[in-house]
Each structure stands twice: as structure tokens, then as C-alpha cells.
Amino acid sequence: MARRAVVSGGGTGIGKAVARRLAADGVSVVIVGRRLSVLESTAKEINAAVGADRVSVATADLTVPEQAGALGEEIASGGAVDIVVNNAGGNPKPTPKDLAGLATVYSEVFQLNVVTAVLLTEALLPHIARPGGRIVSVSSIAGLRGSGPYGAAKAAMHGWSLGLAQQLAPQGITVNVVAPGFVPATEFWTGRLTPQLEADRAAEIPLGRAGTPDDVAAAIAHLASAEAGWTTGQILQVNGGAVLGRG
């Protein structure tokens, strides 16, 4: 029987690349997001590429507990879940200077990046394979060296994941984080990236280029594999050397 994976934020960018990589590896993948048309287009594209109907879709706003719970029940009806990839997130607004605005933005960014991961994971947790389950959350280089609400939210994801790794290790479930560096081909950079900014950011990377969604997907695929059964509680940086040797 094929392994089953759930990938949040699976319609575009890194989530799409993860779904494509896992499906190519023979995994049955449910991609989750809020925009049905985007999810359906991605599923159709990947299924055509792999020559099999391995990607299906489910819509939910994972900041809403009731929707996360209903999604968990829907997915569990299809059997055990082997892999959970928490990729949903974002940083939708500039950081304001007034206190009311700061409170709102920090709350929104925490909801988008941390609460989505916590609720999806907890909703699926009773149904994750034991032993052999894999939970991989997508963080950011901002969680290691960033500032503002986005960096703070991603750093919070690290702490949550490390605690969860300790909790679930006796059950044979691994929990890890992948922290990408500069990956311009994602919706995170929509409306923010100029050719000059992209060139400047790439020039700061020791390996001399920006990352791609496929670079990140390869790291996630390894942590989601059977071969990664003795790797848990780790923050794997995929950043071309932009930050070295600390998690």
C-alpha cells in the first residue's frame, strides 16, 4: 500500500514542489489550501506528470479550529497518514509602527505560520502511523536571523517542533523542521521582489545562487522517507550557506 502524505499550502511554491516530489516517489498526497481552483490545477498538473492519480485536494482555513478538525476527520477516513508537511504560512503585511497595528500583525502572522501547523498536526495526530510517521514543518532562515513578526513566528515553530519531537519519539514518529533561505519562486515574494533585489540577495549567498522550491522539496522528501528514521528534533537549513552550522 502506498504511503499517504498531507501537505498544507500545497497549491503553489514549495508546497507544490513537495507534492510533486512525493508523488513522483509513489506517495499518495493530499494537498491542502484555501483556494480550490489553485489546488485542482496543481493536482491535475502533477498527476499528468507522474502518470497516475496520486494527488488529491482538500480545502480548509487552517487558522480555524473547526475547519482543521473537519479536515482531519475527512483525511482520516482514507486511512492512516504517514507524512505531514506543514508548509502553510506567509507574511502578508508590512510591520506598522503604532501599537494597535503591531498587535494585529503579530497575531495574524502567528496564526498563519504557527497556528496552522499546530492545528493540522493535532487534528491528524491520532491517525499518524506508529511507528514510522513523519512530521516536517517548513520554517525559514528568518527564524534563525530574521526580525519582526515573521522571524518571531518561524522561531516559535522551531520551539514547538522540538518539544513535539521529544513527545512523539517514543511512539516512533519523527518531527523535524526545514528552514529555507532565499527562494524567490514562491508567493511569499509576490509584489515584493525586483530584479535588482533578487540579484543582490543571490550575490550574498556563498553558493552563488538563489534556492528553488525543488531544492527545499528534496530535503523534505529525505526527512519524510523511511531512511530518516533516526533523525528527529532537527532544524535542517537549506540556504546555500547563507547561515552556517546552527539550528
Rank of each mutant, 00 (worst) to 15 (best):
G15V: 04
R21V: 06
A52C: 13
A52R: 08
R34G: 06
G15S: 08
L39E: 03
A17Q: 08
V38G: 04
L39D: 01
V32N: 01
R35N: 11
L39S: 04
D53P: 15
S28V: 14
S41R: 07
V27A: 03
S37Q: 15
R20N: 12
L36T: 15
K16C: 09
V38F: 06
A49L: 11
A19Y: 00
V32L: 08
D25M: 07
K16A: 15
T59D: 07
T42H: 02
V55W: 00
A52N: 09
R21C: 05
A23T: 05
A52H: 06
A23E: 01
R21D: 04
A60R: 03
E45Y: 08
A19T: 05
A23C: 11
V30L: 09
A43S: 11
S37E: 14
D61P: 05
S37F: 15
S41T: 13
T59H: 09
A52D: 09
D53A: 15
V50D: 03
V18N: 03
T59W: 05
V18F: 05
R21Q: 11
T42P: 02
V57S: 02
S56A: 15
V55E: 00
V38N: 04
G51Y: 04
S28L: 12
S41Q: 12
E40C: 11
A58H: 11
R34W: 06
D61N: 14
A19L: 06
K44Y: 14
G15D: 01
A23W: 00
S37K: 13
R35A: 12
R20G: 11
K16H: 15
D53W: 08
E45K: 03
R21E: 05
V30P: 00
G15F: 02
A58T: 07
V30F: 07
S37R: 14
V38M: 08
E45T: 13
I31W: 01
D25K: 04
K16V: 10
E40F: 12
S56Q: 14
A19S: 09
A43W: 05
K16Q: 12
S56K: 10
R34T: 08
D25V: 10
A43V: 12
G26Y: 00
D25S: 13
L36W: 13
A24Y: 07
R20D: 10
R54L: 15
L39T: 05
D53R: 14
